[in-house]
Design a protein around this nucleic acid. Structure first.
Length: 447
RNA sequence: GUGGGUGUAGCUCAGGGGUAGAGCUCCGGACUGUGGCUCCGGCUGUCGCGGGUUCGAAUCCCGUCAUCCACCCCA
């Protein structure tokens, strides 16, 4: 029988968990600094909550749960594993709107599931770390979210990430003004997105195949090729192309406002206007973001404004905006670059109590209890064994101290303490052993 | 959904028609109150699975499954 975890799923061994907890701790602290409150929702949602929210591709990748009991024979699904944290949030807001604050700011770090094909930095179960602000149309929300995400990455040690920025309304304005019929917007964006892969000629060909007029194609390619230009230059160009299109003008105005408001935050140096950024999730309605580093094909995070999603739950339309960071992607890059603090690899115990003989077992367990009461993390070697083996085990585990309570020590009321890093051993009164090692640990951490 | 790489010991991998291998890990010993280093000895295999070719297949062929990578899409 195979002992591997199911496809695209992973086991997290202690070192993995420590790294994950470290990163999630940094993220939670930053989000709290911005005034966001924690939220958790169930892994499973009713299937109709999820279907129709993500677009065709997204719906296809939802893990569905077949009916149980008498319904099992029908092969129908009534439940599904959540595909992201945004749609469950929208459901929660629609359900509890009356009791939530006017501006509901929440963060959520939980696993989501996608029936995708696994790849580097891509798993079927992965954690998203979302921050969202509900209830305001103001672009202050966008700026605060962008600043928080940039603070997180900076605090984790990233110095080379960029945040691509675009706007759904600016995008549709561009297409509309270029004479692309609304029905072709989706396909046109897919083709334009390939610009850096198949080049202007390839995109021109593909657009022609899809029925886009040559003049419109040329105008769009010119606009989308402006990658190296500064934000101001792109903004000016966008304004010119979008022209009188009303939605487009709104989009460009909001992008301008976001860039202006962000000037006083850590996001300012990161934001790159990118007219080609589209994003596949269908619920976005306004600004859209994507966070990237050069050494990973996928993004570290993404997000945007979704003013219509909460209204889809049939109650009241509520504006909303959010950003999602991909924990696994961040961990993959941090691992490759060796960005974790060294003390994450520390042993699980400060001291191991060796067991001299069967007769001393009870006394050794008692000694461990005394040391724990003094604030130490203490492991007891679980059986009486040759001392050599016990030291070898302690050494392999990286435990910095071994306490030996042999017959000689016990007779004198002492404990032998060996510092495994220096090899120095001395006997101290049993009552002082805890204090000695707490002091030694403090010294080691001060180094 | 499309395309490519790889499946051999617990782990990392060699072997490409003729008896199944190495390093690491693990266990024991040198070392009966003391680890790391060294040395000696030992355990571990349906060579992913199924079929075919052959006197003979880990090796060649077909299929299948798993896994990794790329595309699509995404975090």
């Amino acid at each position: 029988m195979s002992t591997q975890p199911a496809r695209g799923m992973r086991d997290f061994l202690p070192d993995d968990v420590r790294r994950r907890q470290y990163v999630m701790g940094v993220i939670a602290r930053v989000y709290e600094q911005y005034g966001f409150a924690p939220l958790e929702t169930p892994a499973v949602e009713n299937i109709e909550t999820l279907l129709g929210k993500y677009g065709e591709e997204g719906d296809r990748l939802i893990f569905k749960i077949l009916k149980r009991g008498e319904g099992a024979a029908t092969g129908q699904a009534d439940l599904a594993l959540r595909y992201d944290l945004t749609v469950p949030l929208a459901r929660v807001v629609a359900e509890y709107r009356a009791t939530l604050p006017k501006f509901f700011k929440r963060y959520q770090m939980q696993p989501v599931w996608r029936a995708d094909r696994p790849q580097k930095g891509r798993f079927r179960e992965f954690y998203q770390c979302d921050v969202d602000a509900i209830g305001s149309h103001s672009v202050v929300v966008e700026v605060e979210l962008l600043a928080a995400a940039c603070d997180v990455l900076a605090r984790l040690g990233f110095a080379d990430f960029t945040v691509r920025l675009n706007h759904r309304k600016a995008l549709s304005g561009m297409l509309q003004a270029s004479g692309v019929p609304a029905a072709l917007h989706g396909e046109t964006l897919v083709a334009l997105d390939k610009l850096d892969k198949i080049g202007p000629d390839g995109v021109t060909r593909e657009l022609a195949e899809r029925g886009v007029a040559p003049a419109a194609a040329a105008a769009l390619i010119a606009l989308f090729s402006d990658g190296a230009a500064g934000n101001d230059a792109i903004l000016a160009r966008l304004e010119a192309v979008v022209g009188g299109d009303e939605a487009g003008a709104t989009g460009v105005r909001e992008l301008r406002a976001i860039l202006a408001l962000a000037a006083g935050t850590r996001a300012a140096a990161r934001l790159r206007l990118d007219p080609s950024l589209a994003r596949g999730l269908s619920y976005y309605t306004g600004a859209i973001f994507e966070i990237a580093v050069p050494d990973l094909a996928g993004s570290l995070g993404g997000g945007g404004r979704y003013d219509d999603l909460i209204g889809m739950f049939g109650k009241q339309a509520v504006p909303a905006c959010g950003i999602s960071l991909g924990l696994e992607r961040i961990l993959v890059v941090m691992g490759e670059r060796g960005m974790f603090p060294p003390d994450l690899a520390l042993a699980a115990a400060d001291v191991m109590v060796a067991v001299w003989s069967e007769a001393r077992l009870a006394d050794s367990v008692a000694l461990a209890a005394e040391l724990r009461a003094g604030g130490l993390r203490v492991e007891v070697y679980p059986e009486a064994d040759k001392l050599g083996k016990q030291f070898k085990y302690a050494s392999a585990c990286g435990v910095p101290f071994v306490a030996v309570l042999g017959d000689d020590e016990a007779a004198r009321g002492e404990v032998a303490l060996k510092d495994m890093r220096t090899g120095v051993q001395r006997s101290v009164p049993r009552a002082d052993a805890g204090r000695e090692m707490v002091a030694a640990r403090g010294q080691a951490q001060g180094e």
